[in-house]
Design a protein around this nucleic acid. Structure first.
Ligand SMILES: [Mn+2]
Ligand SMILES: [Mn+2]
Ligand SMILES: [Zn+2]
Ligand SMILES: [Zn+2]
Lengths: 163, 163
DNA sequence: CATCTAAATGAAAATGATTTTCATTATCAA
DNA sequence: TTGATAATGAAAATCATTTTCATTTAGATG
């Protein structure tokens, strides 16, 4: 009898079901849909973007629930929230089992295109580690995260503006 | 007669008066006050913060004008706008004649304290230069700026939470 | 399966930052 | 001094996000 239960609760379903359970929240339809949207994209979506796509999959979903779900995912460390200075936040999955590891961004200030880059060179990793140590020590901060973004103009926009 | 005028327009007055003139906007009382507030602080103020302080110096000033002035200063490259994920922007002067050169930030996620750090080590400058070159080349971006921020918990907050 | 309780939901209202509108005022070249 | 134009402030509008609250759902229990 309890064997069936255990199978259901631990074995079956996508990896993140367990994360929800461990975090003490339920796996519900709206939450599944939000995860589905996030898993299905490479983009950096706003809450409204996610709402629109979730809505297509299940029109019952409300924007409020999207916000609430994103907040939970954030607390669980499943998504990362970014602020590129547009007045609204953008979200993307953090390393789920495959793909999407920690990375940095390249932002076009004109068309707002956002490029992920993962291909750190040794020097970059070294830089981050050293700087972090140095700052932790000097300013007595317990550093947990960092954001590195480069801002510029993408090729497409450069072409357009000089035509 | 015209000598007096020329003295007034180029010689006298703070450095940024010329910047305004070159940019084709007037130097007005509200704008002077906003600059005064910015010059007088080491903090990273929100528009509302600036409004409150400006208001003390001259109660006639409106919040709208603070926003408008900040926008002009931004376009002129006199202030830098930051988004630390609080849902509101913060502003600070960029290298005016003295002090405040390009720097990076250390943010306490708990109490929102923001520490500037300028003391880059050679490796850090080297890192930025190299990374920028590499990314410009690979992704064909014309990179103009970057933001590097570390997030963590400051000592004060660490003490508090473990008491 | 039926029942119960806490968790989750969606709609609508509230909030808060920023922007827009518009009628009035200040600036400055002529 | 005057006239054209830029700048201003108050109020309204906008837009992202949060809160409130009445209703629905999940899932444990019997
Ligand atoms: Mn990304
Ligand atoms: Mn700073
Ligand atoms: Zn672009
Ligand atoms: Zn702190």
């Amino acid at each position: 009898m309890w064997r069936v239960l255990i199978l259901r609760r631990r074995g079956r379903g996508p990896w993140w079901h367990n994360r929800f359970e461990d975090f003490g929240v339920r796996v519900t339809e709206p939450r599944e849909v939000v995860m589905e949207v996030l898993l299905d994209t490479e983009e950096h979506l706003t809450a409204a973007d996610i709402y629109v796509r979730a809505h297509e999959l299940n029109p019952a979903i409300g924007l409020t629930t999207v916000y609430r779900t994103l907040d939970i995912l954030l607390q669980m460390g499943i998504v990362q929230k970014f602020d590129f200075g547009e007045g609204k936040a953008r979200y993307e999955l953090i390393n789920n089992s495959q793909s999407k590891e920690h990375h940095h961004h390249l932002v076009c200030v004109q068309c707002k295109t956002i490029v992920d880059y993962y291909d750190f060179v040794d020097e970059e990793l070294e830089f981050i580690r050293k700087t972090q140590d140095r700052l932790s020590d000097k300013y007595r901060f317990h550093i947990m995260d960092h954001v590195i973004s480069f801002y510029g103009i993408c090729e497409k926009c450069r072409m357009k503006s000089q035509e």
